[in-house]
Design a protein around this nucleic acid. Structure first.
Length: 105
DNA sequence: GCGCTTATCGCAC
DNA sequence: GTGCGATAAGCGC
């Protein structure tokens, strides 16, 4: 666990409700291009309820590989909640990505 | 639009 | 030291 992972968690925690972010944004915010490392940080996930991995998506606007592989129902429930927040998701694909995408300005 | 290649970080072997 | 993994961007087709 290095500062990289630590940063990823902190950034994720900063993400407000009803908002999501992408691996690209996180990596860029950290000043690196190790997008995959971000995914690793999330899969490590030392604070599951604190680290909303389901809020982290790919730059393409579609959910990552954790969707359906973790618990299916659980992740879908979270997605449903996000949809209620205003995020439009369909089959793991973000419809209004630019509207809900959160950048760590 | 799809597939292959390169870059990059952390972790396991 | 090498390879793999929740990816991304570039290049060719």
């Amino acid at each position: 666990m290095s500062q990289f992972n630590q940063k990823v968690y902190e950034l994720l925690i900063k993400v407000p409700a009803g908002r999501i972010t992408t691996y690209k944004v996180i990596a860029e915010t950290l000043g690196t291009k190790a997008y995959r490392a971000v995914g690793n940080a999330l899969k490590n996930n030392p604070d599951a309820p604190r680290i909303p991995c389901h809020r982290v998506i790919k730059s393409s606007g579609n959910i990552g590989g954790f969707n359906g592989e973790t618990n299916g129902k659980e992740i879908q429930q979270k997605i449903y909640l996000l949809k209620k927040e205003g995020i439009k998701i369909e089959e793991g694909q973000i419809q209004n990505l630019p509207d809900v995408l959160f950048y760590f300005s």
